[in-house]
Design a protein around this nucleic acid. Structure first.
Length: 263
DNA sequence: TCAAATGTTTGATC
DNA sequence: GGATCAAACATTTG
């Protein structure tokens, strides 16, 4: 569910409500989501003040008066302000300004604490939304692989997932199997613009809700209505009228227009 | 019953 | 060191 635009939407909803709040009590119930000792982590968090709420790639980062907490939503994670606890609630944070519920059916999400920050964040590449043209091109050019798996790798560029990679490649008219090292400057510039453009539009729409993504207040996004290729196999291409195809690439469903996107 | 799902990690192999 | 591929995690939905 959550790629950069969805995580950004959640962070924008949380930041004004959480900043300055104090964590009164934390509790956890999933060994998969929380790998640390529950009691020790709860003890560490109790009494901590939330200094800021930010996004890095697909991670939500709560900077505390000591250390930082990162929350990755995985595939089905939801972070709900004053939400209702349910069968898939995996963590709860009692704050002086409300309750924050972490709900995650598949438990692919992760909650980690670190000082000064969780180790996981160190391996992230430059953020897809805040990377300049030069840095973006440079990050991709260093690799010989196919462009789609590269864009999905969070070490190369952080924040993109299956939906927005397919949409950006379509907008830039680049075939998902194209080799990054062989794309011209012009085409990589077009890709950089397409990535920024699709992400900005998706954020403006509150993200994409394909199955169950909701923001911190439980609201769905609407960008799924603007998808050109993702989830539209066998439908006509909005640009050329050809048929959108779905293939498998890097173990992920991949959608593209064979007429618009040539290698 | 089977396939697919907005993600990431790990290990084998070339 | 890279790149590629498969499998794994666990659950829901069509």
């Amino acid at each position: 569910m959550p790629e950069l635009p969805e995580v950004e939407t959640v962070v924008r909803g949380l930041a004004p409500r959480l900043t300055g709040c104090v964590i009164r009590q934390a509790s956890f119930s999933s060994r998969l989501v929380v790998r640390d000792d529950f009691q020790a982590l709860a003890a560490r968090l109790a009494g901590r003040r939330i200094e800021s709420v930010a996004r890095r790639g697909k991670f939500i980062v709560l900077r505390l008066d000591r250390g930082a907490l990162s929350i990755h939503l995985g595939m089905t994670g939801k972070l709900l302000l004053d939400g209702v606890r349910g069968a898939h609630t995996r963590a709860e944070f009692a704050l002086d300004g409300g309750v924050l519920i972490y709900d995650d059916a598949r438990q692919f999400g992760r909650i980690e604490y670190g000082e000064p920050e969780p180790k996981r964040l160190a391996g992230l590449g430059p953020d897809a939304l805040h990377t300049g043209r030069e840095e973006f091109i440079d990050a991709l050019r260093r690799h010989a692989g196919r462009i789609k798996p590269l864009l999905l790798s969070q070490r190369v560029i952080a924040g993109l997932g299956n939906i927005y990679v397919d949409e950006a490649l379509f907008a830039a008219r680049i075939h998902p199997k194209a080799r990054a090292s062989r794309l011209s400057d012009r085409r990589l510039q077009a890709l950089h613009e397409a990535v920024a453009n699709v992400l900005r539009r998706a954020i403006a729409a509150g993200g994409s809700s394909i199955s169950d993504y909701v923001d911190a207040e439980g609201r769905r996004g609407s960008f799924q209505n603007e998808h050109c290729v993702y989830g539209r196999a066998d439908e006509p291409c909005p640009v050329c009228g050809g048929t959108i195809r779905r293939i498998e690439l890097g173990q992920r469903g991949t959608h593209y227009c064979p007429r618009c996107q040539k290698i």
